[in-house]
Design a protein around this nucleic acid. Structure first.
Lengths: 193, 193, 193, 193
DNA sequence: GATGAATGAGAATTCATTCAT
DNA sequence: AATGAATGAATTCTCATTCAT
């Protein structure tokens, strides 16, 4: 159906504008104009601005997950998958800086409520499962899941943000180095002297 | 003069409200009411909403720095200082959850411009210097400064946020564990097999 | 479409209110209420209060010009046209006192900028051309154009204002007398003893 | 008394600022700052902003009258006095362009009420009396007083304004020419063919 | 008299949302 | 479904005026 086309146009327009001007710098009329639709049309697809934003966030996260898992074999050893996923994450951010800007803004705003939280957890599950297995198997250090996420996802995000801001240059060498650093944090013997 | 009192009331009110409702959910009238002053009074102390927000951010960061360095001796070995600073950071966030909420919102909003960036760097300098020395001395692994900050400050911030959201409980055990994990990332031999 | 109706209502309301209360005594909400539209509606037609005022001024001046030139034949001798135009000007002011009040307020306010100036000159051109021709032909005394305008337009305006204020009564006799006085000022032999 | 000094400072400051920024572009605090007094102090001398503006207008008009009559002998023939007064008026405006700007703004604003009107008439009396006498004596054409004012004062004001705006240059030649033109309008035989 | 911090009513303007077409 | 003109509540900010010192 064509119904989906307009919806996508609106989401794409919103993403472009919000990453440039922020949530509150982006009005519904701006989105409508950028998407090439009437102002009222948006409300045929999204009940409110908040809903549009939430939908956009989810869309981005879904896309993110898909690209992060690209090429990852469920049977490969975690250390190997980890390196691949790490590179995927970083490249995603570098390829789509708008997305990270939007996602960060959204994530630290009052838009991000319990419902978002839960949907995100559901979405992240495929990423998390292999780590849980690895913990059970003693391949990586047993850690509370949120701590694990901090030392992996959050670190990658932080690095990407600093790259986008121009503080560092994430070339292959630095990507590999940081991947190795993170992995070492997870491996069971890392704090040995 | 009491001039300072009203200014502080306004800053405190702004902090409380923004951490709850976000920047754009917090109107100047709300701040005035919460601070117990007239709407126009705010403008005797801050030229605009933006300036008020920036001033608040800076104040928080200054306070943060002071509390993080509490008890840290410049002559102590870095590993020892590191543990102390780590605990200080975590405790600061746990003691003042409003601050971290506000600071994160601000940091990822369009309010945060070049000028803020630079003031922050100036402010963070005392924290950074010992690490640079340690790198030169080979005590810790040589890393670009932003990478170092990611693996220390940003990780601590992320952990604290997850504590505040209820995902984990940062008791002394977990604080020590995470400190050790971070430190191991920095130490020169951590990626050895 | 009815689009034009609302625009006109707004202009008419603005004109009435400003001639009574002055620019700054006339708020946008007052105009909206008087025009019977929502406060925001004005901004669908005019980007700002300034623009609304400028548009109104231009509209009035255009209307003025049209009415002043009514019945004036381009081929008639200037002295004859002059009498007609003079009567037209005076009658315009007497018929539309709001307009003159508004125009005078506007003209002596900071709203009146270079751009207004130039648009006015363009507008006045048809009025001015016959005088320039008459000067070349020696029918009237050669004078700098602004001086000519002073002795014609500005004098008529001043007389009309004094009528509106009740200082004089501009009946046909006085209109004819003043026209004759002005014309005598322009004719080449007027200062002869 | 020193009381007068501060009052004068305030009036002078107001005049400077209003001629630059207009009435509503000039706030009481601006005036206070420019005058070097506290914001509240103004209210010891003037009950309100409106009163201050009115007082300023009157002061200017008084000064104007004094300078216009400078060197005018009550016994001299009117034609001679007229030339002198004409030059005085023009020179006053050229010497004090701020005043004309302010006075025009004020005169066409709602600040200018009946009371102002009457005070102005009282003030202008010395200027008017000689003309009335000359009319009785048949030296000049009998005209309603407001018409006379239009053809003299208002014309001079208009010329001065056009000079200030750069449309013409009022050198001695043009001053004398325009004086002669105006005088001819007043003299009893001017409309003869 | 002098001060200037405090006030709060009021201004221009924005924008999410509605609804008649 | 699509439109976009209309709405009006809400926002930031200004400023004449007051009053405790």
């Amino acid at each position: 159906m064509m119904m989906t086309q307009k919806r996508d146009d609106i989401l794409a327009a919103a993403q472009r504008l919000v990453s440039q001007h922020g949530f509150h710098g982006t009005s519904m009329s701006m989105i409508a104009a950028e998407a090439g639709v009437g102002a009222g049309t948006i409300y045929n697809y999204f009940p409110s601005k908040d809903d549009l934003m939430r939908a956009l966030f989810m869309m981005i996260k879904q896309d993110f997950m898909q690209k992060v898992m690209a090429g990852v074999s469920p049977d490969a050893p975690l250390q190997e998958s980890f390196g691949l996923m790490w590179a995927n994450i970083i490249h995603y951010y570098l390829d789509f800086p708008d997305q990270i800007t939007f996602a960060q803004q959204f994530h630290h705003s009052p838009y991000f409520d319990r419902a978002c939280e839960e949907m995100m957890n559901t979405l992240l599950a495929p990423l998390v499962v292999p780590f849980e297995k690895a913990m059970s198997a003693g391949v990586i250090r047993p850690l509370p899941l949120p701590v694990l996420e901090t030392f992996t996802l959050d670190v990658a995000t932080s690095l990407a943000r600093r790259h986008i801001k121009g503080e560092i240059i994430l070339d292959d060498t630095l990507i590999n180095l940081t991947a190795a650093l993170c992995w070492s944090t997870l491996s069971p013997d890392s704090t040995r002297k």
